[in-house]
Design a binder for these strands. Structure first.
Lengths: 357, 357
DNA sequence: TCTGCAAGTGAATCCGTAT
DNA sequence: AATACGGATTCACTTGCAG
């Protein structure tokens, strides 16, 4: 393996052994669905045992939790090393393990961006009627560290796909079932297979086509399958050979989709028009005046160099706006009004930018 | 104070100093809304140049995560001592602190029963478009320890009040506003006042009339007020004298309710399915086409991010619809048609929303 | 009295590039 | 690396006032 990046394969082995071979800073995005049955099984087992033989609760709980913490710290630290400075990680869990994971993420210096709640329309009910129906899972989204690097987030595309309202932290997906559910010998292949919809939203929101997406706990290969469909590269692994075979078979049937370039890539921003263009093109003449909506008395005069002056201040539309309003910053475009000669209406100078130059 | 239980008063003082005076095993239910340890780095301004009033109070400042952990461990340990063996605790938080809280609860030997998600109808949006809108908070419900004692949980009452379906872990409440919001000198009295609906559900679900309900972080006194209204006793405290006075005044105006069982469950409003869910769930595939009834020649293509493009425009089903029709607005759901593969019929995409998610 | 519009606000780890 | 500065960015709901 050496320093080669094992792309687009399903590796067989424990992530604690494989991750150290992945080069540092080579991964754009990580999704992880770590096991928690380690802890859960032990605690259920302990509960049963304690009824019979009275095992020392304190000691056993501590050993079980700390063992889980140590495992978690190891794989999360390796993931952090593998991530690019601009990379982000998603980790999913339930109340059994998500608090350990969130704390360790913070301890390792990851910087949490959001916790997202996957709300299940069709959860397993609480069969004994002793608690609330556990109808959700928590997914933590974090960046590698508290640096200034920009992380990938297709805000505008998500907003457009969400009917022009920004995407929120509550996500609604059915649990994985029907034909999407992988089976082996006619039985559910993996107990915690995640819906492709969840992975689709995660991968398309926080990575770009061509990016490297890693999943240290492959399972049935949902992450890799969606990554392939969305034209991303993948690195994934599982310590159980049966899952490796299953995932490979699943991946072979996946074809990369067309039409999944994010809106923010296709829609190259409208080129910014500097204020001086407005003056140079004669849309506003030197000597004309501007007003602030909230302070009608403040009158600014436009100079030939596209600076303005008001209340004894002179400078850009932004700077003079901030000084007049007493705010630290000000977007002059959406605060200064000019008077339209034809209609006499007061109009935002931002309107002048939509005129084609 | 001695061994007297200071019932139905608002105590003035730090919970770390007061809690040690509360007798062991004297409390049936605890609700705690501890400081979140928010870390705001810059001022945040809205586009219309009003400043967002964040939580930047002395009581929410900790110098480090470990200091926060230590504080948390101390008050949670005291709470555990105060609880009856059958008692339970609820703690609310956000991603800034809830993982620390959950881990420490587990470390101390509390036994987590559920994590409940309070989903807000009307959260503060993400004003910079840099993350998902943080639209929820997490509430952990735990029992004192992993013992065999039965805890209070009115499963049947909750179910009856929830249209005969068992109550789930996703709860929908608007943020506290309007006349419910406590004010002082005409301004918001406390930045983190919780809605009474949340407390009403918590207290009535997990305690009985006459029980002792404790809140170590009184604030405006919501817990005590709801406890009094529901005929419970309360113990509460705050280290800021101003809040003590405020809560006392609020409590004086509360009358215990008659007939407060069964539960009154607020309407649960869940957001409608956005178009992106249709794509993510595979009901429509990227690359498929949509048509307008009135303009059959206009063909729109669906992209992987649930935007569509037609006539050179790209955006949401609504926006592109409006541009194609030349109307100011357009409800894309009832204007775009897809072709059903099985029948060949043209169907409104609105039909796809009725599929159960 | 009713309607419509404007203004205000809520637990927020909330910019990016050029110099 | 630190600073300067241009200019991009929000949703649901309530209250109050004008008409």
């Amino acid at each position: 393996m050496n320093n080669q990046i094992p792309l687009d394969q399903v590796l067989h082995g424990d992530c604690l052994e494989i991750l150290p071979h992945i080069p540092s800073g080579s991964v754009d995005l990580i999704f992880a669905d770590p096991p928690y049955n380690l802890q859960l099984r032990r605690e259920l087992w302990r509960t049963e045992l304690s009824k019979v033989v009275g095992v020392d609760h304190e000691w056993d709980r501590f050993s079980s939790l700390s063992e889980y913490d140590e495992f978690t710290r190891k794989w999360l630290a390796e993931c952090q090393r593998c991530l690019k400075d601009s990379g982000t990680i998603w980790v999913i869990g339930s109340y059994h393990n998500i608090f350990r994971i969130g704390s360790i993420l913070q301890d390792l210096g990851y910087w949490i961006l959001n916790d997202v709640i996957w709300i299940k329309h069709n959860p397993l009910p609480n069969l004994r009627g002793t608690r609330f129906c556990n109808a959700h899972e928590t997914i933590i989204w974090a960046k590698k560290c508290d640096n200034d690097k920009k992380y990938t987030f297709h805000y505008q595309a998500l907003k457009a796909g969400n009917e022009d309202r920004q995407m929120r932290s509550d996500w609604y997906f059915p649990i994985c079932s029907g034909s999407e559910r992988e089976t082996r010998d006619g039985r559910t292949a993996h107990p915690t297979q995640k819906p492709e919809g969840v992975l689709r939203r995660i991968i398309s929101a926080s990575s770009n086509p061509g990016d490297v997406v890693m999943d240290p706990f492959c399972g049935t290969g949902t992450t890799a399958a969606v990554a392939k469909a969305l034209n991303r590269r993948y690195i994934t692994m599982d310590k159980e050979e049966a899952y490796v075979g299953l995932a490979e078979k699943r991946l072979a049937a996946v074809s990369p989709e067309l039409m999944n370039e994010p809106l923010s890539i296709l829609e190259s921003r409208r080129p910014k028009v500097p204020f001086i263009n407005i003056i140079e093109s004669g849309l506003l003449l030197p000597g004309a005046t501007l007003r602030l909506k909230s302070k009608q008395k403040v009158l600014a005069i436009i100079h030939g160099d596209a600076t303005i002056s008001a209340l004894g201040h002179r400078g850009s539309i932004h700077k003079v706006g901030a000084l007049c309003l007493g705010t630290p910053t000000c977007n002059g475009w959406i605060n200064w009004y000019y008077t339209d000669e034809a209609s006499g209406d007061e109009m935002l100078i931002d309107c002048l930018r939509s005129v084609r130059f």
